[in-house]
Nucleic acid binder design. Structure first.
Lengths: 180, 180
DNA sequence: GCTCACATGTAATCCGTTACATGATTCT
DNA sequence: AGAATCATGTAACGGATTACATGTGAGC
């Protein structure tokens, strides 16, 4: 079988109460987007495979001519999710940030452009931290009331990381301003 | 034309002194790997396209039967790199972390397994911060002596972010230990 | 009546990694 | 003499996004 992370994302979100492919996409956009974005073009085929493998159970919920389905975790699906969560080998962080890449090469710029770049990066990181605080945190707080506390903790960790990077960039910005 | 980030990575590394495809891959592994990993299977085709578009100049440097090439930035390549660095639209951070995804779903685990997961994540982030401090920082300090200061600054920002996440996870770990 | 959110899927395309294939040079 | 490193490329595969295609139901 050998499932990949996107498959576990689906299993996990179904476990948290997302019943349809559409609902999974919505939940992912509202919560896991910051550390695992996904698209509808991936959701439906993955769901299909998981059902074929017996990890998800699909029940029909169609209205007239329009197909609609409701998913639930099978016992095998729950077991697969737990095995993944307990797996002792941690995948290395895989991080792609075009902004940091720009910073890396910023020596090529004139001082005023360097300052402008650092400012843009600081603002972008602040915006990301704010988005998490204003959109993801409330959503995951709702989950906490249903007994799921880790979604909120993950959101806080994300906000913290982006916030710390923004602070660091603000310090660099101040330093560059001084030396102008 | 419309170049993507990997193309600018090549242009930027050539500008910093990497002359061959092999050297670019080495430089990327030693420095930009943490925020923009790349593979040899991408380096050579990208280099070829950049040369075809006139952004890189390739001179032959072959020894006998073995092909070897040396790349340099053309004036157009330098201009393209600068345009990209000055571009006012900042691409959103794109971040995929399977570890954070696990944390998000950790409510499914028993308390002891939750603690074990948080510990693994903390260790992994510490390891990443350490790797940057021990491998990337010395390499970029070398660059600083040649007048390029931003590579080191980028490495510090990366180490700072990973370090802060590790601290946060350590706090969570302590909290989970207490409530066991 | 129209627009928007709900809802499901497929196809084309793009990106990126891994594996394959080859060979020279340098160090031990 | 053998291993590791330097060096260049291609091909197969897999993963992910975007665009396409279709249709319902609710609210204005």
């Amino acid at each position: 079988m050998e499932l990949k992370a996107p498959a576990y994302l689906m299993l996990g979100l179904v476990r948290l109460g997302a019943r349809s492919g559409y609902a999974i996409k919505q939940a992912a956009d509202a919560s896991t987007r910051f550390f695992w974005p996904t698209s509808l073009g991936q959701v439906y085929p993955t769901l299909g495979r998981l059902e074929a493998e017996g990890l998800l159970e699909r029940s029909e919920d169609s209205h007239g001519a329009r197909a609609r389905f409701s998913y639930g975790l099978s016992p095998e699906g729950e077991a697969a999710l737990l095995d993944w969560l307990r797996a002792p080998e941690e995948a290395p962080v895989q991080f792609r940030d075009e902004g940091l890449l720009r910073l890396f090469f910023a020596d090529a710029l004139a001082p005023a452009d360097q300052l402008a770049l650092v400012r843009r990066l600081r603002e972008r990181n602040e915006a990301a931290a704010r988005e998490i605080a204003e959109q993801v945190a409330p959503y995951t707080e709702q989950m906490e009331r249903s007994g799921f506390r880790f979604p909120l903790l993950s959101a806080r960790l994300g906000a913290e990381s982006y916030g710390r990077a923004a602070e660091w960039l603000a310090e660099l910005e101040a330093e560059l301003e001084k030396s102008q």
